[in-house]
Nucleic acid binder design. Structure first.
Lengths: 332, 332
DNA sequence: GTGAAAGCGCTAACAC
DNA sequence: GTGTTAGCGCTTTCAC
């Protein structure tokens, strides 16, 4: 049913290796053009495609990459994934995209699977800082590993300058005159959450002040909503700052239900600018946030991994003050 | 550096085929337990994993599936992809997830790539109805093809009952008393857009009326926003119905900028209930929409493809009247 | 109950 | 310039 290299060779009246040479453009120079033509004709006539498994076995290379993120339905990670995949595709690599669902056990299973698939590299956004063992096993096998967005000690990472950006955000808000800010942080085991909290604290403390309160969320809409409700009932916050936009959306919702308005009654800020596509910005123009160049993060991570550069990289971010996008839109 | 089956065999003092039998649980019954133990020990000690390429070559099966969607950053398709992948993973299949970016040429390139990867099946949300040729080539090669969400004649599909659901939506809105409804449709070459428009028309006409106007959008936020602006300036609509939620979000934004309020001044409806995760519903409780069980769509499509059932399937949908989710939340 | 041997489809070193 | 040949790592038929 399916043509093999031998059938192509027979039909063209040549040996299999000649066909192979044509396919891989090997000694295209030293080959009689008419031979090449005959081979190409046979390939076309038989609709021949090389069997990848045979190539991989023979070449001892898979040209495959694994991408493992905590949640592909989260726009942030979807854009990151796309960045990685685009570079991989350009360079002739096949990407295996996996979704750990924020579950370290699923993460471990997928790493196992990627190992079994003999990927040459893995680009990973880890669920936490736990299982370096699974990663070390990959490295021991010669698989290149590059972390994205979140750090784990001992592995290279391409990440945003979360701490610096968060400090800048804090300074911006202090400049607007807020004095009783409550911070909703993210999961303890995630470096981005920690960095953002630290950076924000840096800013507040350098002014001699401190945060009115810090609560821990889970980077989800619900957890932002619940935390904000609590804050609005008990604290006398003049601003609520969430460690990511998803939680900030929850805050906005809670503020709205309380009959308050942003920024008149209270300030609200997020982080990571989940929108990237226009609609969330349009829906929530009052949100102050920080843009993380997540697509570029994916591209850089893939490039470095493929180029064999095993060192880390920090990407710069952009502060998006509330209201900006609306203004831009109106001005166009 | 990496162990092969022969090394495992030598270390266990058996022949390679015995190791293979253990790995694949073949004649586990007729095997001396101590032999099996010795083999398992060697596997563990050498951290052995079979080379997939060799297995695939020998077995003449890849256990790989292709998933090709127009935009993985769109939550709708991300959830669909996840549904497919979950079933594939459960059954020991590897998924190759691809993103055509709504571009028929990229779509063709990815189909090519999947063919080269020797996938056993392709689950596809086509960009349009154009290139059946690429699909036919796959089928001719023995690759199973299952469409999702959007139809192309001649191929099986798992889709929502868009026409029926849209009719129900129309009847619901008519029941609320709207009389001058303007419809924003989707791209002409996409069956879902066509079906939704037809169904909505069915409803309005069965009451002896007709739509005040029909405009064509591109299923994007921007196109919904722009169309709504036009409508609000020229038509005297009492309701705007968009063929998907993304455009409906654009409509809501335009309505807001116009200083109008939903549903007091104007009704707004969407389709496909993009939220699925709580946050969009929370942010936009006033939107009336139709829930499409898109994760289940993915699971069903994968199951049917893997089970060799090459017939189509329509899934039922659920009407979500505006305001419902807020009410539910408050009640909890 | 286990082993020997062939071969899946391809590539590359070496012939000529 | 092109062909011959060996072998990548695995599974499976057929011996015994």
């Amino acid at each position: 049913m399916r043509a093999t290299i031998r059938e192509v060779a027979e039909r063209a009246g040549v040996a299999p290796c000649t066909v192979s040479r044509v396919l891989n453009g090997h000694d295209a120079e030293h080959m009689r053009p008419e031979t090449k033509e005959r081979v190409l004709d046979s390939i076309r006539e038989l609709d021949y495609t090389p069997v990848r498994a045979a190539q991989r076995l023979r070449r001892q290379r898979t040209h495959a990459l694994g991408i493992l993120v905590p949640d592909i339905t989260n726009l942030y990670f979807a854009l990151l994934t796309r960045g990685v995949e685009s570079v991989a595709f350009e360079r002739g690599f096949t990407s295996l995209i996996c979704d750990s669902s924020h579950d370290p056990r699923r993460e471990a299973r997928y790493l196992e699977m990627l190992l079994a698939e003999d990927v040459e590299g893995v680009l990973l956004v880890p669920t936490g800082r736990g299982d370096a063992s699974a990663l070390k096993r990959l490295v021991a096998r010669g698989v290149r590993v590059m972390l994205m967005d979140r750090r784990i000690v001992g592995f290279p990472v391409v990440e945003a300058d979360n701490r610096g950006a968060s400090r800048a955000l804090g300074e911006h808000l202090l400049g607007l005159g807020y004095e009783r800010m409550v911070y909703i942080s993210g999961p303890a085991e995630v470096s981005t959450a920690e960095d953002r909290l630290c950076g924000f604290r840096d800013a507040v403390r350098s002014e001699g002040g401190d945060l009115a309160d810090v609560r821990r969320g889970a980077f989800t809409f619900e957890s932002g909503f619940d935390a904000a409700r609590e804050i609005l009932r008990h604290d006398k916050a003049d601003a609520i700052v969430a460690a990511n936009d998803l939680m900030a959306f929850g805050v906005l919702r809670a503020v709205e239900e309380e009959g308050l308005s942003v920024p008149r009654d209270i300030g609200v800020a997020g982080f990571d600018h989940v929108p990237h596509v226009p609609y969330a910005t349009f829906l929530r123009p009052e949100l102050t946030t920080v843009d993380v160049p997540v697509h570029e993060m994916g591209r850089q991570a893939a490039r470095r991994l493929l180029d064999g550069k095993a060192d880390s990289l920090q990407l710069a971010t952009t502060l998006i003050p509330g209201g900006t996008c609306i203004a831009r839109r109106r001005g166009k």
